[in-house]
């Protein structure tokens, strides 16, 4: 027991023989293989999730002159640039809708998705001081980062309503399906983020690859163009990208015109679920080592 030759004087002398009658609240031991997801514990920490998300929002625009206006300005300017370059110069088809509205509708879920990836991907490293000093389910950190991006989404959504008024697009019953497509977006975003953020702790390569991945993903998704531009024989493969379904889903719900098919929704839901569940398990598997590496 003692490798250094020091003599134990009274080590564990009065260890009682009988086992404690109660059950331990927690057993700390090395775990092998897959750990339980322990969703109940996650629920117990829901206040932390909320507070970390609000912290992220509060901090984001501190010490900026424009403050919250950035939340409106960013998607607006981006949509305008897209409208001028792709709609104006390149004359990409927009399935008959006004191009600005078309592109804004696509950017709404895309910005949520990409923003979540960006923020959640680096969230664990950004919170290393917490991870190395206190215990809580680590999964809370990337999820809280995603939740913080939701605030931007809500602001953009209000902007969309204004656009609809300007372009006089009347809402239809389809609008009530919007929450479903929002959920799909979040499912995919959190699923991919769990993979990215966890692996990023061990391999900082992901930090550098991330902006590049997001950019490629943007062009592989129908944000600036319509899905109808993709040749029909490639649509099935194309539909494996969950972003296709949630972007087209948003357009379908808001504008009424879209190449959205049932198969697209089905495959996107499946792919997102696979990402989410596998991401959750992988995260739980590797989170035990976070404090030792960060």
């Amino acid at each position: 027991m003692n490798r250094f030759g020091t003599q134990p004087t009274a080590v564990a002398a009065q260890r009682p023989a009988q086992a404690p009658s109660r059950h331990p609240t927690v057993v700390v031991q090395p775990t092998h293989g897959l750990a339980a997801l322990n969703l109940r514990e996650l629920w117990a920490y829901r206040d932390l999730l909320l507070i970390l998300a609000t912290r992220d929002v509060k901090l984001r625009y501190k010490q900026t002159a424009l403050g919250v206006i950035w939340v409106i300005l960013q998607p607006l300017v981006a949509a305008l640039i897209f409208a001028i370059i792709f709609g104006g110069f390149a004359k990409l088809p927009s399935d008959g809708s006004p191009y600005l509205l078309f592109v804004f509708c696509g950017m709404l879920p895309w910005n949520l998705f990409a923003g979540a990836l960006q923020r959640a991907g680096n969230s664990l490293i950004g919170n290393s001081n917490l991870i190395s000093k206190v215990y809580f389910p680590r999964v809370i950190i990337p999820i809280a980062s995603t939740a913080a991006v939701l605030i931007d989404f809500v602001v953009s959504l209000a902007l969309l309503l204004i656009f609809m008024l300007i372009y006089q697009v009347a809402p239809t019953w389809r609008l009530i399906t919007l929450p479903f497509f929002l959920l799909l977006t979040l499912l995919a975003a959190i699923g991919v983020s769990l993979w990215l953020s966890g692996l990023n702790v061990y391999y900082r390569d992901f930090m550098y690859a991330l902006p590049f991945v997001i950019q490629v993903w943007l062009y592989a998704s129908p944000v600036a163009y319509a899905t109808t531009l993709v040749p029909a024989q490639w649509r099935v493969l194309y539909g494996l990208n969950p972003a296709v379904a949630f972007i087209e889903g948003f357009r379908w719900a808001v504008l009424g015109q879209s190449a959205l098919t049932g198969e697209m929704v089905g495959s996107a839901t499946l792919v997102s679920l696979v990402f989410f569940v596998s991401g959750l398990y992988v995260f739980r598997r590797i989170e035990r080592g976070f404090a030792d590496v960060l």
Binding site: M1, R3, F4, P8, A10, A13
Partner: peptide, 9 residues
């Protein structure tokens, strides 16, 4: 001491 308990009392 060096990761071991050398006294407990």
């Amino acid at each position: 001491s060096h990761g071991c308990v050398t006294f407990w009392g």
